[in-house]
Design a protein around this nucleic acid. Structure first.
Lengths: 167, 167
DNA sequence: GCGCGAAAGTGATACTATAACAAAAAAGCT
DNA sequence: AGCTTTTTTGTTATAGTATCACTTTCGCGC
């Protein structure tokens, strides 16, 4: 039994369910989930892994939509603010939050080999950071934790950081 | 007594000492600390706060050196690999490590108001991350912790995240 | 001096993100 | 409905960050 068993639904692996949930959430929150915003969120969801802003742009265009980078960035800002999307600063990419309806601090495990990213939400890490910041008299707005390394799958194939960084 | 009391020297506030220490370290390690590398490191040290790659470039040019961005990035890669410099992914900036000779995981407190960055090295945070990653069967290469928020100084002036983000 | 590998130079280019202003669409009000 | 206001999106241009490919120079050991 995984530590993630409490997730009611792994939205990351079920784009349709995630979109439906988003529809409902925004409806009830009185926030406008416009076609463009929905489309961008869908693209991010279906990517199944972190995706760059310009990749999103390209996929929008594949669907006949003419759009400029700024449009994508605006939507990304919106989705991030609404906590439906996370930004990964180290790799300049965006991914869907696995549990948007439950506000939480997230940590990311980024595989240097295959580029896969796993979102975890470890309260111990979160608490340690809150404590550390408090000790330094620092008021946390949001903590960013991006852990670079090798995922279990790649490690099983004998890959190391040295093999992958340069690829 | 501060948790940082074990620091023999706060290199961040003493560029000359830091440079001298670097000279000695690289000498004994048999690694080439070339004039360009030394110059760039000095610029970062004297900045006293995180500095962007193109700012470094500009300062190199101020000193009569004609250089291209790639030169700066190559040196930065070197200095980061040697653990003398940290890269702050969230703000695309670089800063000198306060304790290069002591390998450690660092965490950064980034003030959204004044842009100041404090490097801390909290073993509790580090351990929590190591544990969390292990639980997810993930082999950590290096953990990146960048905590956005408001520093004590700005908080004392009544500033909030809302006031500063847009500036 | 010569050869080798590491480092730096050169010129071009890719990638990421935002600014400034105009047009359109939705929401609220009378 | 007609009007205003606000929000969202479009349009064009540009700023900011980082890397590629290839050449030249430098340091070191023989």
């Amino acid at each position: 039994m995984s530590v993630f068993a409490h997730h009611t639904h792994d939205y990351a692996s079920d784009p349709d369910a995630a979109l439906e949930a988003a529809d409902k959430y925004f409806q009830s929150a009185g926030v406008r989930f416009t076609p463009l915003r929905r489309r961008v969120f869908e693209i991010i969801l279906r990517a199944g892994k972190p995706i760059g802003a310009y990749d999103i742009l390209e996929r929008l265009r594949d669907h006949g939509k003419i759009a400029a980078p700024i449009s994508v960035y605006r939507v990304l800002d919106f989705l991030i603010e609404q906590r439906f999307v996370h930004r990964l600063a180290t790799i300049n990419a965006y991914m869907a939050c696995v549990t948007p309806e439950d506000p939480h601090a997230a940590q990311f495990l980024i595989c240097q080999c295959c580029g896969s990213v796993t979102e975890i939400s470890d309260p111990v890490i979160d608490k340690a950071i809150a404590e550390g910041a408090r000790a330094a008299d620092f008021q946390v707005s949001y903590p960013l934790v991006e852990i670079m390394g090798i995922c279990a799958h790649c490690a099983a194939e004998g890959k190391t950081a040295g093999d992958c960084k340069k690829s």
